[in-house]
């Protein structure tokens, strides 16, 4: 129960920070992905995995879907972020389960960057496929790229010293 409250509080805090950044700077960020990353750092990094204390994968998936749902609530379309967050979260769990990776800061940075891009890309493809929305592709890609770049130092910060 404590853990549930902790993660719901963190979700609310992430939403608040993301909204504040948007209000004060006009920059759209993808901090929810960092929340997923933090969750995985907490429960799935090799040290914890070795201790065999990681939870099963269904509850995390539901949590990722919940994060995606919260994100989608602000978009008027429910679904794209649920799918993207679930898929990227799941793949991230699978990556962390591989013992042959050395989780050095550069590697973590690359993973954060690639998975943020993947998350954004899945969501973008779904919206573009189902809805007749006009996008300026270059601008959209640039924004996605910037969001991924922003996540790298923040992700390294929240996972500093781990594993």
């Amino acid at each position: 129960m404590k853990k549930l409250i902790k993660w719901i509080s963190l979700t609310a805090l992430t939403l608040l920070i993301q909204s504040l950044i948007l209000i004060f700077t006009g920059i759209k960020t993808n901090l929810f992905f960092l929340l997923i990353f933090l969750f995985i750092v907490d429960y799935y990094f090799p040290k914890e995995q070795k201790k065999n204390i990681s939870p099963n994968e269904v509850y995390p998936l539901i949590f990722f879907a919940f994060i995606g749902f919260i994100e989608d609530l602000g978009q008027e379309i429910i679904g794209p972020s649920i799918i993207s967050k679930s898929i990227t979260g799941y793949l991230l769990i699978k990556i962390t389960n591989q013992f042959f990776f050395t989780w050095s800061p550069p590697f973590k940075g690359i993973i954060i960057f690639i998975f943020t891009l993947l998350d954004e890309f899945i969501s973008m493809v779904i919206v573009m496929s189902f809805f007749n929305l006009d996008f300026e592709h270059f601008v959209l890609l640039k924004e996605i790229f910037i969001r991924a770049l922003i996540n790298v130092p923040l992700g390294l910060f929240i996972s500093w010293g781990r594993p």
């Binding site: 099963n56 994968e57 269904v58 998936l61 539901i62 879907a65 379309i77 429910i78 679904g79 794209p80 649920i82 799918i83 679930s86 898929i87 799941y90 769990i93 779904i126 189902f130």
Partner: peptide
């Protein structure tokens, strides 16, 4: 794990339907 794959498929399918109707 089978359970996680099934969960993922369920979530994705449900969402795809939801998006389609939206």
């Amino acid at each position: 794990k089978k359970s996680s794959i099934i969960s993922l498929i369920l979530i994705t399918t449900f969402c795809i339907f939801l998006i389609f109707y939206q």
